[in-house]
Structures are given as structure tokens and as C-alpha cells.
Amino acid sequence: MRKKIVAGNWKMNTLPAEGVELAKGVVAGRGEVCSCVNFIVCPPFTHLAMVAEALKGSDVALGAQDCATEAKGAYTGEIAASMIAALGCKYVILGHSERRQYYGETSATLNKKMAQAYANGLIPIYCVGENLDEREAGKHFDVVKAQIEEVVYNLTEEQYKNLVIAYEPVWAIGTGKTASAEQAQEIHAYIRQVLTAKFGAAAQETAILYGGSCKPSNAAEIFAKEDVDGGLIGGAALKAEDFLAIGKGFSK
């Protein structure tokens, strides 16, 4: 059985005290959702220590939104994978579309970040996905395949066992266009096919999350699809009630 995962990417939102309250809200309501669902919260770097404290004693995991390409040194403003691991993070989001789009992250960058994550015992949530122009040009399969082949194909079999993939239809975020559950299943199945070509049967165990405007109203429909194993949640993760309701999408 593949893991069912609902991960909250808080992005650059909340102040530390607000983040603590949000985390406490998730912990307080966690018991209302099937224990088969794995919850992860990914606050800003500034919140990690405080949120880790708020999560103590619960099974809600902590993740970071990024890590540096280097282990340590004269890299002002960067946060090493070892630092976030030391604060209790189990996961790290890598290759998010916003990092690719706004900060020029390439496959070369991400290969270095993946290596740092694994060297420090972190599980990467590796993001792939196409933008609107690429989708409309029918290039979405090619784009996603390249993003996987250029990074994930470089992993060892052992590393690959500790990997989560998140598919983000960038074209469906803030554009007024919506990805249907069928479109989500189509691309998730394709991603699993690309992973199978390299890693064989192990690809059947890889959790592939949907990251495009998933909310309480559509979670059950999307999660019902065979190759959708959960969600990487943005805006809806900023309210504990909504975040938990998305998790309940698995039990409907």
C-alpha cells in the first residue's frame, strides 16, 4: 500500500506565533482523520523550531520548503539541509514551481539539493509540472518526463525508496483554469510510467501528490483516482479546519 499524504506548504505566510497556532490546530483535529493519512506541515524557515515544539507527541511530520545546494560555508542567507534536519524536519520540498520560475532553479541546482537532502536523512518532496504555455502546446508530458529524468533518474535505488513526487499543474494555479480529476489521473499515471521505466516495480510504492488548487470541496474526487496518493496543499493549508478536511477526502 502506498502512503496517503497530505502536505501543507505554507509558503511565505504567517508569523511565527500564528504558525504555532496553526500547527496546534492541526494536531488538535488530527484524531478526526483516518490514521492512514500522513500529515506534513512545511512552515517558513523562521518557524521551524517553534512548530516542531507544537507538533511534539503527535504524528504530524515537519518539513521545510527548500534547502541549500551546499553543506555549509560562505553562502549568506542560505539554509543547509543539516540545519533543517537538526530542527526536526523529516521532509523537504524541492523544485517547487515558484522556485523554478522566480529563482531560476534548474535540474543542475536540484541534483545538488537532492544530494544534500539525502545526505542528511531528509525525504524530498520533488515537484514537477508544466506551465500554461507548455500545457496548451501539448508539451506537458515531455516537460514532466524531462524533470524526472534529469533529477530522479540520478538517484540510487535506495534513495528512490525515500522519495515523494508532487505534480503541480502550474497552469491551473491562479489562471482561472481548473485541472479535472481525470486530468490529474492522466498525468499521475504517466509520471508513474516514467518512474517505472527506471525503477521498475518500486514505482508502484511511490506516493505521487497532486498540487493544483486542492481543497475540501474537490479532495475526495481527486484522491479517488488510482494514481493520486494525496496532495501538496497551498492556500487551504493555512486553515487547520480546511487542511484536515482535505485529509478526510480519503475516507469518503
Rank of each mutant, 00 (worst) to 15 (best):
C67S: 00
A64C: 05
M83A: 07
E70R: 11
A80D: 06
L62W: 06
R99W: 12
Q101W: 12
L87H: 10
A80I: 06
Y91K: 10
K90W: 07
T69V: 13
Y102P: 12
S82N: 06
L87N: 13
A80N: 10
Q101Y: 11
Q65A: 04
G73A: 04
K90H: 09
G88N: 11
I79H: 15
T76S: 02
S82Q: 09
E78Y: 09
M83W: 12
G104S: 08
C67V: 06
G73T: 05
Y102K: 13
Y75G: 02
R100M: 02
E105M: 09
S82L: 08
G77L: 12
K90E: 11
E70S: 08
I79D: 13
L94K: 00
E70W: 11
R99Q: 10
G63T: 05
Y102W: 14
L62Y: 12
E98Q: 03
Y102A: 10
C89M: 11
Y75F: 08
Y103A: 13
G77I: 09
H96Q: 08
A64G: 12
L62V: 10
L94A: 01
G63E: 02
Q101F: 12
S82A: 15
A85Y: 04
A74E: 08
G88R: 15
R100I: 02
H96G: 11
H96V: 04
R100G: 01
